[in-house]
């Protein structure tokens, strides 16, 4: 059945049942915008003004130089996703919004972890890196930097595994996503 923010129409019963629609799950919005000054401010400003909270945000170019893609993850338990997407649609520079279904997309995130790793536990850290198919991109006497790519779950699992060794710092890009199959996102 239709879920707010998706292309399906909402049924009358569903609308009747709710006041502000909270789906309770994570949403990945893929927003195609014109590559013009101020667009990101406009999008993020809209969220601030309407009291919506962005979990992650990633922006980058697309195959068309006049367009950029913003990939954003939001918590549907905290925000009425239909309101978010409808408000976004009102922005003149926003061309298209897709609320990607978890089963219909591939989502990836890149993260870098600077982990405390001196003689004693270096081997163990390296083993975890191996298991997660992560990559060591920098080594010093007391630390390593590991680069991990994957879905949010994998990155969070990696974080849980290496944290006990002592995490110096961590940086994540936020998820980007694209629709599965031939259809355009």
């Amino acid at each position: 059945m239709g879920e707010p923010g998706t292309k399906d129409r909402l049924s009358l019963e569903e609308l009747e049942a709710s006041r502000g629609i909270y789906t309770g799950r994570k949403h990945v919005l893929s927003i195609l915008v014109e590559n013009k000054p101020g667009v990101l401010t406009r999008v993020s400003g809209l969220f601030a003004r309407r009291g919506f909270n962005i979990d992650t945000l990633a922006v980058g170019p697309t195959d068309d130089p006049t367009l950029s893609r913003i990939t954003m993850t939001l918590d549907g338990a905290q925000h009425p996703i239909d309101q978010v997407t409808k408000q976004l649609h009102k922005l003149v520079n926003v061309i298209k919004i897709r609320d990607l279904e978890p089963s219909e997309m591939v989502a990836r995130e890149l993260a870098m972890f600077k982990i405390h790793a001196d003689g004693v536990n270096r081997a163990e850290v390296m083993q975890i890196v191996e298991i997660f198919r992560a990559k060591v991109v920098d080594v010093t006497k007391r630390s390593v930097i590991a680069e991990v790519t994957g879905g949010r779950d994998k990155i969070e699992a990696f974080e849980r595994m290496v944290r006990p060794f002592g995490m110096v710092e961590m940086a994540r890009t936020g998820e980007i996503a694209i629709a599965r199959g031939r259809a355009e996102t």
Binding site: L12, L15, S18, Q87, K90
Partner: peptide, 15 residues
């Protein structure tokens, strides 16, 4: 005319 007004404050049975 503004879809964002539909069901913003009060859910519409027939938008």
């Amino acid at each position: 005319i503004d879809p964002a007004e539909i069901s913003k404050n009060v859910p519409a049975h027939i938008p």
